[in-house]
Design a protein around this nucleic acid. Sequence first.
DNA 1: GCTGAAAATACTAATAC
DNA 2: GTATTAGTATTTTCAGC
Lengths: 159, 159
Amino acid sequence: MTFDRIDLKILDILQRDATVPVARIADQVGLSQTPCWKRIQKHEEAGVIRSRVALLNPDALGLSLSAFVMVEAIEHTAEWRTEFLAVTETLEPVRDIYRLAGTHDFMLRVVVSDMPAFDAFYDTLTSKIRLRSVSSVFSLEQVKASTALPLSGLIANSN
Amino acid sequence: MTFDRIDLKILDILQRDATVPVARIADQVGLSQTPCWKRIQKHEEAGVIRSRVALLNPDALGLSLSAFVMVEAIEHTAEWRTEFLAVTETLEPVRDIYRLAGTHDFMLRVVVSDMPAFDAFYDTLTSKIRLRSVSSVFSLEQVKASTALPLSGLIANSN
DNA sequence: GCTGAAAATACTAATAC
DNA sequence: GTATTAGTATTTTCAGC
C-alpha cells in the first residue's frame, strides 16, 4: 500500500487527536469532506488505523511504576517460546511484549502500582515459566509519552 | 481523587475502544446516559482521560524498527538533564522518555524505519549531547501492544 | 445523585457534477 | 476529486424528580 501526502496528514492528525471531526480534517488537508471521509474509512478497513482509544493518566489511577523486564530463554525452542507467550500474555501487568535481537530474547513493559506489586508479578512470572536470566529496569517517571508514530519525515518525502 | 467501580469500568471501556457511544457505555455500567456522560466529562477535565487518539499500524507505514536506548549521564547535574531532555524531546524518532532508577539514567523508546535510520538517529543524538554510555536493545517484533492500563485489579477491589 | 426528552452537532451514504 | 443533500446516530444541554 502507498500513502500520499494527504493520507499521511490525515493519519497524523488522527493519531494525535481522534476527536477532530472529519470536516476539520478535510479543511486542514485541503479536501472536501466526502473524499476525506472515504480515505479514513479505507485506512480503517486496511488496518492502518488499528483502533481509537482513550489514553489514561497512570498516576491518577495509582499505577505509577513502570518496569522493563528483559528475559533470556532457558532453551531456544519453539515450545519454550509458545509457553512464554502464553504465560506473559495473560499476566495483567504486562502491557507490551517485544521480541528482541541480541542477548536477551524478550522484553516486557510492565505497569504496576508499586514495588510490592512488582515483586508479586515477578514471583508469578518466575514460578510459571523457567528463565535463564531476568534483568529489570525501573522507571521513576515518564518524561515524554507519545503513542503517535513519527510521520513528519514521511510527509516531507511524500507527494 | 477517588474512583468507584463504575468510574473504573467506564475508563476501562474507553481505554480499549474510544468509539463506543456513551449510550452503550451507560448500559454496560448500569447507568443512564446523562450521569455516564457527566462522569466521562469530569474525568476528561481532571486529566484522568488525557486524550483520545488513533493507534496506527507501524508496519503499514514502514516504521517497523523499535529500539530502546539506555543512556548514562556524563555528569549528574540539573544542567545536563535539562540539556538532555531539550535535545531528546525534539528528536522525531524519540517517542517515549523514561527517567530510570539504577545505573542508567534515561531510556528512550525510538521508532524508525530501519537500521540506517537508527544509525542516523544515533549519530544525531551523540553529536548533540555528551553521554557516558549508551546501550541499545532492538525489537524485531512487537508480540503484544496495549496502551490500556491494567485496571482489572482495581475494579475487583473497588466499591 | 438520577431520568427523559430536546437541541445541536457529526457521521454516513447517496446523489449529480 | 467537488458540492449538495438527506437520513441516522451521537453528543450535549436542559428541565424536572
